[in-house]
Amino acid sequence: MTDTTSGIISYRLIVVGCGNMGYALLKSWITSEAVDASNVHVVEPVGALRNRAAELGVAVHNGPDSLPDQADLIVLALKPQAVSAELPIYRRFARQAVFVSIAAGVPIVKLAALLGGAPVIRAIPNTPAAIGKGSTIVFSGDGVPDVALNNVMFLFAAGGAVHRVEDELLVDAATAISGSGPAYIFYLMECLTAAAHELGLPKELAGKLAKETVHGAGALAIQADNEPADLRRQVTSPKGTTEAALSLLMADEQLLSLLRRTTKAAFDRSQALATHA
């Protein structure tokens, strides 16, 4: 069923939903050759999204009725609001397949109940997985075979870093950081671009500088042995330009306070989705 030593999973894989996150994952798995496209089936009702998935060489379906009878792994790339209506349709695979849900906030106990007691894993990836720079948190429910969990970890590793947690509450905490985090960073790029343009830089150049600065700083932080605070101090010369800027950014911990409120809002929403899904 699986040969991760050769760098490919021979799972019969079904992906339910192929929006932005589902497509990012699918693209990372196909382009990295973690899976064979001929073993993958995608269920996506939206024609444009279905056609986009088909360009990766996978089989596509408008709905579940035309799916094959056998599957080893089913990835549920659904919005939390769609879970209750959609999951019971896939109960026919419960005895043979392991399910992986990327729906924020929906707990294992609810997912398993909707699927007739099937083994379920929760995974919270983020969109940089499309280029192998993602970050995924994984939590495994009861009854998931070790080989299946290992295969899921291997699969998501094709999109970047994978971290397993033992407490499901940490999945919601991670959702507020890595799951939603790319949007925070993209907004920071927007703000830097706007500020740079106001200082007189051409808009195109301002955008490039914002992207390159964020990209470079992130890459340096990943590779360096230093903590981010140490890296910040290295850039900050006494009485220099950076110190002048940071004196505003760090005043009264305003940015820290804002980020605490930001991530808490995402965490609270994740918790709320658990009761409304």
Rank of each mutant, 00 (worst) to 15 (best):
L256M: 10
V100Y: 04
R52G: 00
D225R: 15
A48E: 13
Y90E: 06
L73A: 05
V40I: 13
P45N: 01
R95D: 14
T4N: 10
A206R: 05
A183Q: 02
G117N: 08
N39D: 08
V162F: 01
E190A: 03
G116P: 07
W29H: 04
T127P: 04
L209E: 07
R164M: 13
T175F: 03
D252S: 14
R233F: 11
I177N: 01
T213I: 08
S66R: 12
A224F: 08
E168V: 05
N150A: 14
L115A: 04
L115G: 03
V106Q: 09
D3P: 03
E166V: 11
L76A: 04
R92N: 01
G57K: 05
H197L: 11
E86T: 14
E198I: 12
G22S: 03
K110Y: 00
L192N: 01
L169M: 11
E198R: 15
V75A: 07
T175N: 08
S178W: 00
G105N: 06
Q223G: 05
E198M: 13
Y11E: 15
K239L: 10
L87E: 02
V75D: 02
V235F: 10
V60L: 06
K211D: 09
G181D: 00
E227I: 08
A174L: 05
V138F: 00
D3W: 06
A210I: 09
A173Q: 12
V15I: 15
G132F: 09
R232S: 07
G105C: 06
S28F: 02
L201V: 09
V235H: 09
I121V: 15
K110C: 00
D72S: 07
K208P: 01
A94T: 06
T236M: 12
L209F: 14
A221I: 07
Y184C: 04
A221Y: 10
V214T: 06
A85G: 00
R233L: 14
A194I: 14
S38H: 14
G216N: 07
G116I: 09
G207S: 10
M189S: 12
G117E: 07
V171P: 02
Q70T: 13
A34Q: 03
T193P: 11
A196Q: 10
D230G: 00
P125N: 01
L73K: 05
A183F: 03
S270T: 14
T175Y: 05
V46E: 12
P45S: 02
I124A: 01
A85W: 01
L199M: 14
A195C: 07
T242I: 11
W29I: 00
G143D: 03
N62K: 10
D142I: 13
I177S: 00
P68D: 00
E243W: 13
T262K: 08
V60I: 14
A210N: 08
G116Y: 10
H197T: 15
T275Y: 13
T262S: 15
R261P: 03
L256Y: 13
F267K: 09
N20A: 10
V109K: 12
T263V: 15
P80S: 07
M1A: 13
N20S: 11
V144L: 06
D230A: 15
L111A: 04
G116V: 09
L56N: 02
M21R: 00
N62H: 10
S257C: 09
D230Y: 09
A174D: 02
D172I: 09
N150R: 12
H61V: 08
V162D: 01
E168D: 02
